[in-house]
Structure formats: C-alpha cells, structure tokens
Amino acid sequence: MTARRIAAATHWLGGCMQAMASDGPVHYHVSAYLISGSAHTVLIDTGDPRHWPLIEAQLDEALAGRPLDYLLPTHPELPHAGNLPALLARYPGAEVVGDVRDYHLHYPEYSHRLRPLAPGERLDLGDRQLELAEAYIQDLPNTVWAYDPGDRVLYVSDGFSFVHDVPALPSMGDDEPGHRPGECRLLSTEMPAAPTVDQAAYGTGRALYWTRYVDVTDTFGKIGEFLATRPADLIAPAHGNVIADVPRMMKTALAAHRQVYDAYTSA
C-alpha cells in the first residue's frame, strides 16, 4: 500500500492486521498520518514495527525529499509508538512531542529529543497550528488527540475504531481471506457498505477494555461540543478507515460503545 493523500497536506500511512471474529477473519488498520505544513512536518503515531519497511517507503514517497520534523505518538503503546527508535534514527533532526511524561523510560537514549506539549498547546507547522486536544476516549492516561484546522482533520488515536470484513478473492478458497484491491485504504464513504455498529463494537470492546463498564453518553456530548468549535471534515483513527461522514459515524460509534456497555452490565 502506498501513502494516500486524504487532504491537501495530509497523507494516510501504515498497514493492516488480521484478527479472527466469531464469523471469520476481519482486518483492522494500524495507521499513521503525515501532515506537511509549509514550514514543518509531523507524523501522528508511528505504525506497528511489523510495518516498518512499508512505513519507511511511504514516508519517502509522501515527504518527497523534505525532512520529518516532529513525531507525535498519541500514547506509548506498540502500534502508536513502536517505530519511534527507527524513526528517530532515520530522521536525526526530529523531536518527539506530546504527552511524553514516560518516554524517557522507554527510550532513554532519546530523552534529549522529547518536547512536552499539553492539550490546548499548538505545534507550529508554518501555514497551520496543529492543536493538541484532550483524548475524550483514552487507552492510557497520557493519550492525546490532535486537531489540524488547515485540513479540518481530528486525530483520535484509539477512538472511533472499527474493523472491516475480509472478503475472499475469487481465486482463493473461502478459508483464505484476502483483500480486494485498495480495500484497506478507503474512506468510510468509499467502503462497499457503511461501517456497522457491530464492526465498531468489535474493535471498541477489545482495544478499550474499560468501555465494558463505562457509559460514554456524556463523553460523546463533549466530543460534539469540541467539533462545534473545531469542525472536522475527516476523523482519522488509528484502527479504522478514515471517517468522511462524521455525523453518521458519531452516531455509529456511540451506539457501539452502548452495545459493549450493555452487553457486559447486563451479563
């Protein structure tokens, strides 16, 4: 998969992983996103280390000779920060920004390249100011989101995650799932069918264990308030197709969280 430009200054990078659901295999993205401002570039999340050769090639393509200036892992978990050592070695001028409170423990050799940024603070990219935002849906305590007002994209880490089905290719047996061409790099509006509540609930219940015990109705109200002042044309999750139909997917994601919560509180 090559890097896909999804907005004027934004490329979608990364690869896909396979998991087994009760009715067969499904795929889920492990995505990273490159924003190329007029003065500086930033990579949001790093992708999974298993995808490093792919991400390295995608970055070469998307950067087109420019340096990578900033790395913003949304939290220190393998799919989000696992490629930091490789990226910092390849781009010696890059800094790690965000909630970096414990990254010096993971990567002590790079402690001098950590730059704390808190929600509400901005990263100057030249023609745009990338705003760090509170992670309304968290995986770890130092999870952060980000908002790009230039391309109107909200980066939500493990929020709004969903899997997608893997159809069998005509040349393969039913027990050998494969991708249709380009299926793993589609906007939500380009999928053969809109993501379902079940697909969103599958990812939510596994990636965010706490959602089994928390009613997030008020949380989605806060996300709606955030979007009212920072409108987003795209929502970019780490583990799902990029969302281009934001109002509909807000409803789907909330319904998925409720489904997970109801299933475990009623058990």
Rank of each mutant, 00 (worst) to 15 (best):
G126L: 07
L130A: 05
L130I: 10
L130M: 10
E134K: 09
A135I: 12
Q138Y: 10
Q138I: 06
L140D: 01
L140T: 04
L140Y: 05
L140G: 00
P141Y: 02
P141I: 05
T143I: 03
T143F: 01
Y147T: 03
D148K: 04
P149K: 14
P149V: 14
G150H: 10
V153G: 05
V156G: 00
S157W: 02
S157H: 03
G159M: 01
F160Y: 13
V163T: 11
H164E: 07
L169G: 07
L169Q: 12
P170K: 15
M172L: 13
M172T: 09
D174V: 07
G178M: 11
G178T: 07
G178A: 08
R180H: 14
P181C: 02
G182D: 08
S188F: 02
T189H: 04
T189C: 04
M191H: 11
A193I: 08
A193W: 06
A194R: 05
A194D: 09
A194C: 00
P195N: 13
P195I: 05
D198V: 05
D198L: 07
Q199T: 08
A201L: 00
Y202S: 06
G203I: 03
G205C: 10
G205I: 04
G205W: 08
L208H: 12
Y209V: 13
T211K: 08
R212G: 13
R212Y: 09
Y213F: 12
V214W: 09
T217Q: 06
T219W: 00
G221F: 07
F226K: 11
L227M: 15
T229V: 13
R230G: 00
P231D: 15
P231Y: 14
L234Y: 11
P237T: 12
H239F: 06
H239C: 04
V242L: 11
V242I: 15
P247W: 11
P247G: 04
R248G: 08
M249T: 01
M250W: 10
M250K: 11
T252F: 00
L254G: 00
A256Y: 01
H257L: 04
H257T: 09
R258D: 09
Q259Y: 13
